[in-house]
């Protein structure tokens, strides 16, 4: 079994900032594939795998626009969205932000945190945690 490197744990350098939610990531993914799209395009695109309300997708795309991940231009009555960054650029920006993320912000502050360390969790731990989270009578929500 691996042991934690305690010296490394003390001052975590890799702060995971929760930057994109699952839906946001999915929308970005579609936009990278299509290069540009309206909200309706994305709703139709996503409808193949999941049913989402138009307003839900719109909210997400507006938020992505506010986060400066999407650019938009007016096309008649609607907006046409384009990714502001390539996937690679976003990846670089995120890793840069991660280094300056939550824990880095907190730096040396004396805090005992529930979530400050959340970050480097591999797939097997993730799956194990999910199993425990769903046992007892707490079903998946």
């Amino acid at each position: 079994m691996r042991r934690p490197d305690l010296r490394r744990l003390r001052r975590p350098e890799r702060a995971e900032e929760k930057f994109l939610g699952p839906l946001e990531a999915e929308v970005m993914d579609r936009l990278w594939k299509r290069r540009s799209a309206t909200v309706r395009d994305i709703v139709d695109d996503l409808a193949r795998s999941r049913e989402l309300a138009y307003t839900t997708v719109m909210t997400i795309m507006v938020r992505l626009h506010e986060k400066e991940l999407l650019e938009r231009t007016r096309e008649g009555k609607t907006y046409l969205y384009r990714p502001a960054l390539t996937r690679q650029e976003l990846r670089e920006r995120l890793s840069r932000d991660l280094a300056r993320g939550l824990v880095a912000d907190f730096g040396d502050a004396a805090l005992a945190a529930f979530t400050a360390e959340l970050g480097t969790v591999d797939a097997s731990h993730r799956a194990a945690l999910r199993r425990v989270a769903q046992k007892d009578n707490r079903g998946p929500r």
Binding site: R2, K18, R87, L90, L94, L118, T120, A123
Partner: peptide, 24 residues
């Protein structure tokens, strides 16, 4: 509260050799 699996696919979670506090 764990970073989403999507972040993993973006290659954000660089695998580290030692166990993190969360993993422990």
């Amino acid at each position: 509260l764990l970073p989403d699996a999507d972040d993993v696919s973006l290659g954000l979670l660089v695998p580290v050799s030692s166990l993190s506090v969360t993993e422990a």
